[in-house]
Computed example of a mutant assay.
Amino acid sequence: MSRDSRYPRAMEVTPRSAADEVDRIVDAWRRERPDLDVEPLTVFSRVSRLARHLDRARRGAFARHDLETWEFDVLSALRRAGEPYRLSPGTLVAQTLVTSGTMTNRIDRLERRGFVQRHRSPDDRRGVLVQLTDTGRERVDAAMSDLLDVESRVLDVLAPAERPRLAALLRTLTAQFDLHE
Rank of each mutant, 00 (worst) to 15 (best):
F62G: 00
A175E: 15
D66P: 00
G60Y: 00
R125C: 06
R80D: 03
V47S: 08
E151V: 11
R24V: 14
S121Y: 06
E12Y: 04
A18K: 07
P84G: 06
S5G: 07
G114V: 09
P84K: 08
S88E: 12
A167R: 08
P15N: 09
R125A: 15
L75A: 02
D66E: 15
R113C: 01
A51Y: 08
L97P: 01
R113I: 00
Q95M: 15
R52M: 14
D23T: 05
Q131S: 13
E181M: 04
F72I: 01
Q95H: 13
D149E: 15
R171F: 08
D37W: 11
D156H: 10
L36W: 15
G90D: 10
D37F: 13
T42A: 14
R24A: 15
T96L: 01
D156F: 06
R120V: 15
L148F: 11
E151T: 12
R165S: 14
H65Y: 08
R126W: 06
L147A: 09
T133W: 03
V140H: 00
V128R: 04
P89T: 03
D141H: 06
D66Y: 01
A94G: 09
R56Q: 12
R56L: 13
I25N: 00
A63H: 09
G101F: 06
P15F: 10
L36T: 11
T91C: 05
T99Y: 04
Q131L: 06
P8D: 13
I107P: 00
F177H: 14
L169P: 03
A63I: 09
Y85I: 02
V74S: 00
R46H: 15
W70C: 00
F115R: 02
R163C: 05
L179Q: 13
F177E: 15
R125F: 12
L173G: 12
T99N: 05
S48W: 12
F62V: 02
L92C: 07
A28S: 15
D66C: 03
L170F: 14
P8Y: 10
E21Y: 05
V26R: 02
L41T: 02
A77Q: 05
R86L: 06
V154D: 00
E12D: 09
R86C: 03
L129I: 02
D146F: 04
R59E: 09
R59C: 09
T14F: 12
E12L: 07
E39D: 13
H53R: 14
R125W: 07
A57K: 01
E151D: 08
A63S: 12
S17R: 07
W70A: 03
L110I: 11
R153V: 01
R118L: 08
A175Y: 08
L97E: 13
M1T: 14
S5T: 08
W29F: 14
L110P: 00
V140M: 00
R3I: 04
L148G: 08
A77Y: 03
L75D: 01
A57L: 08
S76M: 14
V43D: 03
